[in-house]
């Protein structure tokens, strides 16, 4: 089964700014002015991650010209960590006495998908996946499945979002996952451990029908859990290309999810060596490392299809296809193949 579907709109809130120099420290999402898009209650009451999600999703539906949606699938590796830290801190400070409930409600990982259902009055399918580097991938795959089901929807709102709060960043640092600031640089040149934490919120409308404004076609979504060798990753890429009747030489662009952690990136280094002539970008230089960084990579691919990458490659200034290859902590490998046609 090789279902495919169309990306009819996409919106991303991310740290990416095409003219920004490489930054040190945490890569924070560049937040928009929420007021024109969110209502006063949402502006006042919702935590930052939910705001980013509601904003990206609302923009996305508007761009697709939709005023309703039949299904929502969301991936978030960590969900609302902000709700956890606030409620936990409050119950410790109050010694479990008269703790305000709001942060507890906001700590629910399905808060974004639930609030979207509420806002859009969507009574249909509603799912939230919280699995590390497979969170967005499962949401995207679920969207593809839904569109092919006999009684399935015509459009699915698919999202991937994660927030790196200062507390979460401190915990990552304490656990040894953050790169020493002296060693920061392009992820592909890293020879040291640790990553630069990032964040972002990306939503897209995935549809069974092509429309005049269709941005890209999702041709394949694969995940590979805990491969033992780089060869397994290479074989997955080879199988995916074979299913698409392509050879490595046919690839116009590969977006690689090197994290900057030298050990975790080893298998991806071997994989990219097996695609020596394909133009490539390392998307975590722009968005940092987080569970749902591949959602940003899909946004980047769509942007590259539109030709916003004059600096990218003289050979393919307007790529027609793109393979995203990602790893998260050397356990979650994923592959998303997109075309523009």
């Amino acid at each position: 089964m090789h279902p495919h579907a169309y990306i009819n709109s996409i919106h991303s809130i991310s740290p990416y700014a095409s003219d920004a120099p490489a930054r040190a420290g945490l890569l924070s999402a560049l937040e928009p002015a929420y007021a024109p898009v969110l209502n006063p209650a949402e502006l006042r009451r919702t935590p930052r991650l939910v705001k980013m999600g509601l904003y990206a999703a609302t923009r996305c539906l508007a761009d697709a010209g939709l005023d309703h949606i039949d299904a929502i699938t969301v991936g978030s590796g960590l969900g609302s960590f902000d709700g956890f830290e606030k409620f936990e801190t409050s119950l410790l400070a109050q010694a479990e006495d008269t703790v305000p409930p709001t942060p507890f409600i906001q700590s629910l990982d399905n808060a974004v998908a639930g609030q979207l259902a509420l806002k859009l009055q969507c009574h249909g399918y509603n799912m939230t996946y919280t699995h590390r580097g497979f969170s967005f991938e499962t949401a995207l795959l679920d969207g593809l499945l839904l569109l092919t089901e006999p009684d399935g929807p015509a459009d699915v709102l698919v999202g991937g979002l994660d927030e790196t709060t200062p507390t979460y960043a401190a915990l990552l640092h304490q656990a040894g996952h953050v790169k020493n600031p002296d060693k920061l640089g392009k992820v592909e040149h890293s020879r040291t451990p640790g990553v630069l934490p990032g964040e972002g919120a990306t939503f897209l409308v995935l549809s069974s029908a092509r429309r005049p404004g269709t941005l890209a076609t999702v041709r394949a979504v694969r995940t590979l859990f805990s491969p033992r060798t780089a060869l397994e990753v290479e074989q997955t890429v080879a199988a995916l290309l074979r299913e698409q009747h392509l050879t490595p030489a046919d690839l116009d662009l590969v977006l690689l999810g090197h994290s900057g952690d030298h050990a975790h990136d080893q298998k991806l280094r071997a994989v990219e060596a097996s695609l020596p002539d394909t133009p490539r970008e390392y998307f975590k230089n722009y968005c940092g490392e987080y569970h749902t960084a591949t959602a940003f990579a899909v946004w980047l691919a769509v942007r590259r299809f539109a030709g916003a990458a004059a600096e990218l490659s003289e050979r393919t200034p307007y790529p027609k296809n793109c393979l995203i290859i990602n790893q998260y902590r050397d356990a979650n490998y994923s592959f998303i193949f997109l075309t523009q046609d």
Partner: peptide, 21 residues
């Protein structure tokens, strides 16, 4: 927990986690 259990059972073809409260 999902990843630990998957590894112990030797399941690797498709692994994911749901949280809808």
């Amino acid at each position: 927990s999902t990843e630990f259990i998957s590894r112990r059972l030797g399941i690797r073809d498709f692994v994911t986690t749901v949280n809808t409260a």
